[in-house]
Simulated assay, not measured.
Amino acid sequence: MEQHWRDRVEHVWDRTSELSDAEVLAAIDALVAERPDDDAEALFEAASGRDYAGLEAEAAPLYREALEAGLDEPFRTRALIQLGSTLRNLSDYDASLEVLDGVDDGHPLAPAAAAFRALTLRDAGRPDDALAAALTALAPTLPEFGGAVARYARELS
């Protein structure tokens, strides 16, 4: 049952290029309605649907509810990143940074969190800190010059 529901959710997300934003949201909401009101995964999908449709103000509290309801991986870190991005879009930069800082540096999605952190810092009027965040995330991936890039990043912030 659980996997069948997840497969149906993924099917909706796979078809976004064929559907309008309203159709995506309606399809996600129909699937969410099949689950209990406090189901963490369903809350996450409801938030994601609203986020996708540009309804960030509706998405943010649903992301928080999903996390408070005990959302597990592989969705927990995605929810943190998506919430951080949503809060940035809502111009709540301090909250965005706080959420994004909650992503474990060792998680495979940590570079995405770093990217959204850099975007948040830039939008908050802190371009040097944004560049430092981006360079700090990039430095470990450089086979050469990583140390130099990391040092320059520290000088910016």
Rank of each mutant, 00 (worst) to 15 (best):
D123F: 01
L131T: 14
D92I: 01
E23Q: 15
T16E: 11
A33H: 07
Y52F: 15
T136L: 06
P74S: 00
S91Y: 06
S91M: 02
A66D: 05
A153C: 10
A118M: 03
A42H: 10
L62D: 08
T120C: 09
P140D: 04
T136Y: 08
D51V: 00
L97F: 04
T120A: 10
T120K: 04
W5S: 09
A59Q: 05
E73K: 05
H11C: 03
L25H: 08
L83W: 10
D105L: 10
A33K: 12
D29I: 09
A60P: 13
A33I: 10
V149K: 04
P74W: 00
L121N: 00
L121G: 00
L87P: 11
D14R: 13
D123Y: 00
A27G: 12
L135R: 13
V12K: 04
P127D: 01
R6L: 15
E144K: 13
T141R: 08
W5H: 09
D38I: 03
L119P: 00
E65V: 01
D94V: 11
A139Q: 06
R76Q: 12
R6G: 01
A69G: 12
E58V: 02
V32T: 11
A115V: 14
A59Y: 05
E34G: 15
L131I: 13
P143V: 09
A40D: 13
H4P: 03
L138G: 10
A27H: 14
A114L: 00
R15H: 14
L90N: 04
L31K: 10
T77V: 15
R117S: 11
V24C: 04
R64A: 12
A22S: 15
D105T: 12
A33D: 15
D94R: 12
A53P: 14
R154D: 15
P74L: 01
E98L: 09
D51R: 11
R117H: 01
V9A: 07
E2F: 09
R154F: 01
A95N: 08
S20K: 08
A59C: 07
I81V: 15
N89F: 07
A110Y: 06
P36Y: 05
L109S: 09
A124M: 03
L119E: 05
R151W: 07
A42R: 08
G70F: 01
A118H: 02
G146M: 09
Y93W: 14
I28A: 02
D123E: 12
A110T: 11
V12T: 07
A118W: 01
E155A: 13
T86Y: 09
A153K: 08
F145D: 15
F44D: 01
M1Y: 10
F44V: 04
A118N: 06
